[in-house]
Amino acid sequence: MNCKSLLSLTAILHCSLWFLIPQAKAASGDAGPKLPQLDVQTYASQIFWLVVSFIVLYFLVAKVAMPRISEVLEERQERIEDDLDKAETLKKEAYLVKIEYEKALLSARERASNATRKAQDEITKRGAEVEALANQKVSNMLKDAENRIEKARLEVDSGGDASADTLEQSVARDIVGDTVRKLIGVDVSSNDIDKAISNTVREQTR
C-alpha cells in the first residue's frame, strides 16, 4: 500500500539520520547531542512567524488567488458546455435538414419517374392511334381497290361489247376527233364519231 511504503521510506531515512548523528557529534567535537531543531529557545519565534505567514498566505490564497482560478475554470467549463450544446443543436438541425433533403429527393425522383411513365404511355397511345388510322386507311383503300376490280370484272363479264368497248370506244373517239380536226379543221360531235365508228366496225365485221 502507498501509505505503508511511505512509512517505511520515512523509517529508513530516520534510521540513517540517527546513524549519522554520532558521526556529526564526533565531527563537530561538540559535547552532548545538539540537534538545532531541539533548541527550545527558537520555538516562540518560529511559532509566531509560522502563524503570521500562514495566516497571511491563507488570506492571499483564499481571497485573491482562488476566486480568480475558480472564475477562470468556471468560465471555461461554461464555455465548453455552451459549445457542446451548440454543437448538439447544430447536429440536430443538420439531421432535420438531411431528412428534409432526402424527402425532397425522394419526391422529386417519384415525380420524375411518373412523368417518364406518363410520357411513355402517351407515346404508346399516340403510336397505336396513328397505326390504327393508317391501317384503317390502307384497308379502306384495299377495299376500294377490290371493289373497283370487282366492279370492273362484273362489267366485263355481264356488259358484253357495249361495256367492253367503252374504253376502246372513248380512245377511238378521241383519236378520230383529233385526227379529223387536224386533217380538215372541223369539230365533229362525239355522237357523229360514235356513229361513224360503229358503222365502220359493223362493215368490217361483216
Partner: peptide, 15 residues
Amino acid sequence: DLSFTTSSLWMTVTV
C-alpha cells in the same frame, strides 16, 4: 524572543 530568523525569512519567501 520573536526574532526574524532564517526560518522566518524562508516562510516569507514561500508566502
